[in-house]
Design a binder for these strands. Sequence first.
DNA 1: AATAGGCCCAACCGCTCTAGT
DNA 2: TACTAGAGCGGTTGGGCCTAT
Length: 340
Amino acid sequence: MGRLPCCDGEAGVKKGPWTPEEDKLLVGYIQEKGHGSWRRLPKLAGLNRCGKSCRLRWTNYLRPDIKRGLFTDDEEKLIVHLHSLLGNKWSSIATKLPGRTDNEIKNYWNTHLRKKLLGMGIDPVTHRPRTDLSLLAGLPGLLAAAGIFGGSGAATAAWDMNALKLQVDAAKFQLLQGLVRALTTAAAPAPAPALGMDNLMALLAVSNGGHHGGVDQNMLLQQCQWNDMNNLPVLTSSAPTSGMHNISGMFDGFSAGDGLSSTELGDHGGASGSNVTVDRMVASDQECNNNGGGGVSCEQTPASSPFGGLESLNLMDELNTDGGWKDLLEQMSWLNSSEL
DNA sequence: AATAGGCCCAACCGCTCTAGT
DNA sequence: TACTAGAGCGGTTGGGCCTAT
């Protein structure tokens, strides 16, 4: 086996950007005679390019059925959904988006969607919540400030707006309000409201100082609006609170028409898919304990240390029991009031 | 106005897979 | 079976453009 790369040994073959004249020659030739053998095409078409370069130029740019322009919201969501199922199988993903090339989708993923997911607290590779410490570091402060959890007896304490306003700046306050509005209006019947892991991660990111903490606040607001718009699925106590769960849920509308073959679904090594059992994110971590008072504490986590990922995820497990989310939302509902 | 740095995306590189001989 | 050509795929690069300072 083994052979020289396509253009090796072809001295003087032009590389780099294509000129309009070259495009014209290539399109003209293919429209008249078809591409046939790509290796012979350049000579026949009068182009000083290698066949591979011609093929790429045609398939990625000149093909008449290519759809140019910005990706629509639907396309964007479909890409995320398919990527959660297929991983970096760009060509497979491209077959589900008529007029889009694998290269275009790959570029769009790497330059836009990947960052968007990161900003939403989702790992773009696994489609699960990020658990890095930097993102979680601000949790105790926010929750304590908001009086939701932590602190001495804060779990059951009444809201103290004045105290909170002193501790949370206006920008954070506005973000929190938007977040809570999205969460509490997205078809969320008690006792298991549609408060997903990704939403909480966004909350954590806010608590971590917005863009100053490396998280884009606009991205978080988009997340809130997006979730609200798409009516996130209700998470029950039997369903682990995972980003994968929610992200896939966001795009359930697309699933029926995907037409994905079992081969496509089964043949991806990178990302976890909704067809794959999602492991419980925290199974045996013993550091966090339910304090039995409707709130959750992390008694063995020193107050001075960053709030670790596993602890946070256990917190999510606790909240995901009956009453946990209800209590949380009841306590947070004031943020959505006209007083603000 | 100049410039440095970041972003975007078309194009390239190198590898694997498949078909033909 | 061994080999080659051709095609396709995913990762990476680099140059142009944009934005912040």
